[in-house]
């Protein structure tokens, strides 16, 4: 389990890194925390000819509060997000989910940008950023662009990133008042990728009616699965058990696409998604009412 030969660069500035990417194109891969890329290289599933290690570029690891949300640098380690008071205050959904990602050893290396760029449909951050309607700044020698999470994740391990681009940071909007959130997932072991999971955010109006809702699933499709119709179904409603059940039913019968593997059949995943969706809406609802 040794990787195939590769050239290794460790640029200290973003410009240098971008120039290397522009030069090597599809032959190059960015190395961030290495927690996904290095195992794939050791299995020789990934055989990049060139590695551009971005760990020596300063100023890519930060969590800054801003007007309306929080800015997160690409090299922010999971452990930083997990322990950041800024994250706790402005993006509690992310903050409280971090301990569910792998185990501490992986979280001290794995990065925000790496997890998003890797776009594993079972990973939490792609789902959470989609749920929170985050956007990402992608930079190349050709310039920069902001792409929303729902446009960024295209499919299995596939994103809007071009080979010469680096995801430099993300902006995660803060939830408005009277909002609630929840992430529910089922993992075989505490640190495993989820068999199925769902994130829910809800915002209520002053009378307690659901004003806004977003339900996004993980591990039941080739990307974060935004259940748009089910989310819309909740809007304008009082969240009675029937309303919650109806949205759950719609989301989990029509808006997810679970697959079979050795850990779970599609049927079981769908069943889990349903159970979890209901629990997530209920918990988000409780939180929105200030009950938790």
């Amino acid at each position: 389990m040794k990787p195939a030969p590769f050239a290794y660069y460790a640029p200290t500035t973003l410009d240098e890194a971008l120039s290397l990417l522009s030069e090597h194109g599809y032959d190059a891969k960015v190395l961030a925390g290495g927690q996904s890329l290095v195992p794939m290289m050791n299995f020789r599933i990934a055989q990049p000819a060139v590695l551009v290690d971005i760990n020596n570029i300063s100023d890519l690891a930060y969590i800054n509060a801003e007007e309306g949300g929080v800015r997160v640098g690409a090299l922010t380690r999971h452990h930083q997000s997990e322990t950041s008071p800024v994250m706790a205050r402005h993006a509690p959904l992310i903050y409280s989910t971090m301990p569910k990602i792998a185990y501490p050893q992986v979280r001290t290396r794995g990065t925000f940008g790496g997890s998003l760029s890797h776009a594993d449909p079972s990973a939490e951050l792609p789902t959470l950023t989609t749920t929170l309607d985050a956007k990402f700044r992608l930079v190349s020698q050709r310039g920069e662009r902001w792409v929303s999470a729902s446009e960024f994740f295209i499919g299995l391990y596939t994103t809007a990133l071009e080979p010469d681009e680096i995801l430099v940071e993300g902006f995660v909007p803060e939830l408005p008042p009277r909002s609630g959130w929840s992430l529910q997932e089922v993992n075989r072991r505490k640190h495993d990728f989820a068999l199925a999971g769902v994130a829910a955010v809800l915002t209520l109006d002053e009378s307690g009616i659901c004003q806004d809702a977003r339900l996004v699933f993980l591990s039941v499709g080739d990307r974060p699965m935004y259940a748009e119709r089910a989310s819309n179904l909740l809007k304008g409603q009082t969240l009675t058990p029937e309303a919650i059940r109806a949205a759950t039913e719609l989301a989990t019968t029509e808006e997810i696409d679970p697959g079979d593997d050795i850990h779970a059949t599609a049927d079981f995943r769908r069943h889990l998604a349903k159970t979890l969706c209901q629990r997530a809406i209920e918990q988000a609802h409780q939180r929105a009412q200030g009950k938790q």
Partner: peptide, 16 residues
Amino acid sequence: LLNASFMDYLLVGSTE
């Protein structure tokens, strides 16, 4: 063998 790695062969860990 479909699960020839510790990603997919689930050993019980301290958390279990």
